[in-house]
Structures are given as C-alpha cells and as structure tokens.
C-alpha cells in the first residue's frame, strides 16, 4: 500500500529518543501533532521508556503506535559508525519504516549526523546526487533566500557543493516561486580567488555549470538579498545557523533589558518573541528537510521541544503531500542532463 497516495492519512515515524529533550518533549510534540495535524504517528524507541511517556497523555482517538527499538544514538558517537554498531537504534528502525513503505516520512532530532547517515545508507540518495543536504529558508529576516548545507555534511568536495546548489535552485523555484534563482558561494570575499581551497576549487565548477552563478557572496549577503541560493559546506552552515539563533536570543534579551519599563510588558514580550521568530525560523518550524534522499526525512533541531517537534512533523506531512522527493528527482535529472549537455558542446 502506498501510504502517500492523495487522500490517505500521512503516517510519520518519529525517533522518540533523538534530541536533547528526548523522549519527554518528542513524545509530547508527537501527541500534539497527531491531535492537531491528523497524522498517524509511529513512535520508535525502547517500548518501556516510550510507553511510560505516552501514558502521561490522553491519546483516545489518536493514531499513535510504538515501534520497538532497543538502542539509540547519543551525542559524541561517530554517527556513521554508530549506525552500523547499533543496528537496532531508534533512528535506524524509524528510517527503515520509510524504506519498507510502513511510514511516509521520518522525523529525527539528532544527532544530525546520525539522521543523515541513516537516511543515506538506508534510503540512499536520489540518482545523480552524491549526498543529501540539509537546507531551506533559515532566517525570517530574508524569507526569499535558501541556504545549503546547514549541517548535514561537514566536509564537502566541490562537486558536492554544486549538487547542493542544484537542490537549492529546485527548492527556491518550486517552494519559493523564484524564477532563475541567483546562486552565491559563501566565502570571505567577493573576488574569484577569495576563500579557502574548497572555495577556490568550487568557483570554476560553478562558473562553468550554466547555473545563474553570481560569484562569491559574503556573510552579510545572508541578509542582503543579493543571492537567492547561498551554498556552503555543513561545517560553516551549522555554525552560521547556531550563531544566528544565539544572536537573536541575545538581542531579544538585550531589548527586554533596555526597553523594560519604557513600553508595556505585553508589547515588549510580543516584540521580543517576534524578533526571535524572525531570527530563528528553523527553531520555529522545527527543523528542515533532508533533501536528496529517497524518502521524506525531516531533521529537527537537537534542542527541539514539543512545539518544534510538532512543527517538524507538520513539515514532514507537507513534504509528503507536495511530492517533494518526486519533484526533486525529476528536476535533478533535468539539471544534471543540462550540465552534461553543456559540457559536450
């Protein structure tokens, strides 16, 4: 049975043991999602632990099942090796449910490397793509800009960065309605020779790709609107995302301190909450899709609490219903073919 057929209820497997606040917040967010989103939830983890969390809630009328997994990944393990050593880890079992068509999507709150490694080895990449990528709109202050990779691949080769750019373009075209998106390579200077070895090797590849490549962009361009798709490796991307979030929180605290007593408390609270949301949409949405694998995978933030988990499940449902994976496959094939044709000319 293809659960993702239109009109079918979307079934999502959730790694109940992933993230800093697992399983408490993951289970709570999943229950809320089942209630609010009308999705079916498969909570994956050690049955006794997950069951004891689930008992705290009234789940009458909700479709929530527990799927047994005896182990789970912890921070500090080498993710790629950990999923081989812990073959019954919750993220591994949760991802296999998608592979075996028992779930339409999987949501995992980390460790990010473990979610990526599981997706890559169990679901595999769509044809013509070497690695999946974590990305999307990452800051509300610039809602028309897609950044990739935001943490999935800490070491990248130039051709992988080019793949991420193609995925970013497809995302910008299909989900943000941007025509012929401008692509920038994140570096420390606009000129061609600027940047580290990876940047310098990637630049000519981008330049000759036929993509709408505008050259190197700098940190301030993440907010300037100069590029629609900004590409970096996951090492840089993850630092940028976490710094941005921290900056948003710190600025909100600064505003609270300095405006307290000058404007109404309620107004101040609304202002700071709005500011945090604008600087931290990944947190507000609950994470981002892992793009380029043969299945819908949403990587939730490691610090996700229940509302973010609900948001991540909502994203997973949206990705299933909009045919994200199929769209990507078709468009990637076309883009790679165009690059090949260009090389032959």
């Amino acid at each position: 049975m293809n659960l993702s057929d239109k009109g079918k209820i979307v079934r999502i497997s959730v790694d109940a043991m992933g993230g800093d606040f697992a399983p408490t917040e993951i289970v709570k967010g999943s229950v809320d999602a089942a209630r609010e989103e009308g999705v079916e939830i498969l909570l994956v983890g050690p049955r006794d632990i997950v069951e004891s969390e689930l008992r705290k809630y009234d789940t009458d009328g909700l479709s929530i099942q527990i799927v047994q997994a005896s182990e789970y990944l912890v921070e500090g393990e080498h993710p790629a090796m950990a999923i081989r050593q812990k073959r019954d880890a919750s993220i591994v079992v949760a991802t296999k449910l998608v592979r075996d068509s028992k779930a339409d999507a999987v949501v995992g709150a980390g460790p990010t490397g473990g979610v990526v490694a599981s997706a890559l080895t169990i679901l595999g990449c769509v044809a013509s793509l070497s690695r999946p990528v974590v990305g999307g709109v990452f800051i509300g202050l610039n809602k028309k800009m897609v950044a990739m990779d935001l943490g999935g691949n800490v070491d990248c080769q130039p051709y992988q960065l080019l793949d991420f750019a193609i995925v970013g373009i497809i995302y910008a075209e299909k989900y943000l309605n941007i025509e012929n998106p401008r692509v920038g390579l994140l570096s420390i200077g606009a000129e061609e020779g600027k940047g580290n070895a990876q940047n310098q090797e990637s630049y000519p590849l981008f330049k000759d790709s036929g993509l709408n490549f505008i050259g190197n962009v700098e940190g301030h361009d993440l907010l300037s609107g100069r590029a629609d798709v900004i590409i970096c490796d996951g090492f840089v991307g993850n630092i940028v995302v976490k710094f941005t979030e921290a900056m948003g929180n710190a600025t909100a605290r600064w505003l609270e301190k300095n405006l307290s007593g000058k404007i109404a408390d309620e107004e101040l609270r609304a202002l700071t909450m709005a500011y945090i949301a604008e600087t931290n949409p990944a947190g507000a949405l609950g994470g981002g899709p892992l793009l380029g694998v043969n299945g819908v995978v949403v990587v939730a933030h490691g610090r996700s609490k229940a509302p973010e988990i609900t948001g991540a499940i909502q994203q997973a449902r949206y990705a299933v219903e909009t045919g994200l994976v199929e769209n990507l496959k078709v468009e990637l094939e076309k883009a790679h073919q165009a690059i090949e044709n260009r090389k032959e000319q």
Partner: peptide, 13 residues
C-alpha cells in the same frame, strides 16, 4: 580515493 566515513559506510552497506 578521498573516501570519508559516510562513503565507507555506504560502501560497506
């Protein structure tokens, strides 16, 4: 071959 840990895991699987 410039294989990283994810490449090696994919090869083994």
């Amino acid at each position: 071959l410039e294989a990283d840990s994810l490449d090696i895991v994919q090869i083994l699987v």
